[in-house]
Design a protein around this nucleic acid. Structure first.
Lengths: 114, 114
DNA sequence: TTTTCATATGAACAACTATTCATATGTTTA
DNA sequence: TAAACATATGAATAGTTGTTCATATGAAAA
């Protein structure tokens, strides 16, 4: 089955690892989860929400972005279950809805500042 | 400056958060870091390397992928400084090169299995 | 040295994604 | 009720990304 002759990798080991591989669907879900963090706009939105609950318009103001662009990205954050929201009058207030978010962001910072 | 009347967000607060916002370049770097995790192929490669150092060909065999596709993705992992490699004869052995990798993957799993 | 093998890489293409623009929805105020 | 406001969303577009195919590089074997 292996096409090469990497001398330290025997067939048994390869077959074992292949068998132990995580289910494809789980891997896709995990990749989708990280995709949420893989955009600078969404990271900025998360950064703002780490400081305070905030309405869409104020997020747009702080980030110098259009209301539409922010709303589209909040939709992605919602789909990823990273934010929750509450409606109050005409406004919608978003806030973080996951304990892992800060941890993951911090791990990321920790890495890039090697 | 704020275009809306979200009553609990005053101008001072908005300006303060705006001023405290992380530098754009850092945010881009952070997004780029998470982009590395935002692909199922790369997550699979990382999963394999979490178990053992491995040559390119064996990774391709385990994941049922072309050598070229794996090599291209290893390049991305290398650029993100997530893997290191050593050459031995004709083969190149890759392994994980960052303590945060397992932590971040685990955090991800922790989230998606809510 | 020539061939074979393991890996890397450039170009091309298809699929995906973020933003913009226009508009819809739903709430409050006049 | 009509107008104004805050947010959401669909369509279109530009930019990005992952894979394939062909080929290059570099090392070992014949």
């Amino acid at each position: 089955m292996p096409k090469c002759n990497c001398e330290n990798n025997n067939l048994d080991m390869i077959n074992q690892i292949k068998k132990d591989m995580v289910n494809d669907e789980v891997v896709f879900d995990l990749a989708d989860f990280f995709k949420v963090f893989a955009d600078s706009t969404r990271i900025k939105i998360i950064s703002v929400l780490l400081k305070s609950e905030m309405c869409v318009c104020d997020i747009a103001t702080i980030l110098d972005m259009s209301q539409s662009a922010v709303s589209h990205q909040l939709r992605v954050l919602r789909a990823g279950r990273l934010v929750k929201y509450r409606k109050e009058g005409k406004s919608v207030y978003y806030s973080l809805d996951d304990d892992h978010v800060k941890t993951i962001i911090d791990q990321g910072y920790s890495h890039i500042s090697h």
